[in-house]
């Protein structure tokens, strides 16, 4: 981390959050590419996705180790919140509840998505790079990841133009523009969601209080099972 910066708790939180989110994004990409590999119809496609997935796994490993390094430095109280858990990838939106992209998109759209997002990822690493001092290991590692992302972007472009020759490079530009807008929209939504969350929390808690009062009135003891044959309880009952 940049030694010229003196970090307060809020900044430490922000740094660990960025590292955790980036790790989640990289791990999510690794899983997306692995799924694409398994569902490929051609072994040449599978090979490409396999290599891509391996790179993304390695990137996540790098971010995991950086997160660990700064997690140790910043102390238990803050670090505890930023433990990496693969189960949170869906909740955080890095993976869709509907399934992997390759399962829900057309192949053409999927390749265009990869093309665009590798570039967007590279751009966001520019920002992360600024967190670390010059000549640090972390900067070197992230620079390597950035060049990998650029390579993936180039490979996706080649692949796209080879298999969809009727589409022109400018059409890829449209994909890129669309994804950039979506990405900015996501960031805007996220930022405002957090803001809204702060404003609405008292309302949520008031509703929780009312709902809690109602639920409290439900006599769940009447559904106790002691002495009953569990095989005879109605199988359509959800309580």
């Amino acid at each position: 981390m940049n030694k010229t910066l003196k970090l307060n708790k809020e900044e430490e939180n922000r740094y660990l959050n960025i590292l955790n989110e980036t790790l989640s994004a990289e791990y999510g990409s690794a899983l997306e590419m692995l799924a694409a590999c398994k569902l490929s119809e051609k072994d040449t496609f599978a090979y490409g996705y396999f290599q891509h997935s391996k790179d993304e796994y390695n990137h996540s490993k790098t971010f995991y180790s950086i997160l660990g390094k700064y997690g140790r430095k910043f102390g238990e109280e803050i670090s505890r919140k930023y433990r990496f858990n693969t189960n949170s990838l869906i909740a955080k939106g890095y993976l869709s509840r509907e399934g992997y992209l390759i399962e829900t998109m057309k192949l053409k759209d999927f390749i265009a998505y990869v093309y665009t997002n590798e570039l967007l990822a590279r751009d966001s690493f520019e920002g992360i790079l600024k967190l670390f001092k010059k000549n640090s290991n972390e900067r070197d590692q992230i620079s390597q990841i950035m060049s990998d992302e650029l390579r993936h972007h180039g490979l996706a472009e080649q692949h796209f133009l080879k298999y969809y020759p009727k589409l022109q490079p400018w059409q890829l530009m449209i994909y890129r523009f669309r994804e950039s807008v979506k990405n900015k929209g996501r960031k805007f939504y996220d930022k405002n969601l957090k803001f809204l969350d702060k404003i609405l929390t008292p309302l949520y808690y008031s509703l929780a209080f009312i709902a809690g009062k109602i639920i409290y009135l439900i006599d769940l003891d009447q559904f106790q099972r002691e002495g009953k044959n569990l095989m005879d309880i109605k199988s359509k009952s959800i309580i």
Partner: peptide, 8 residues
């Protein structure tokens, strides 16, 4: 006492 730092 203090809980363990998960990254240690």
């Amino acid at each position: 006492g203090k809980p363990r730092n998960p990254f240690e």
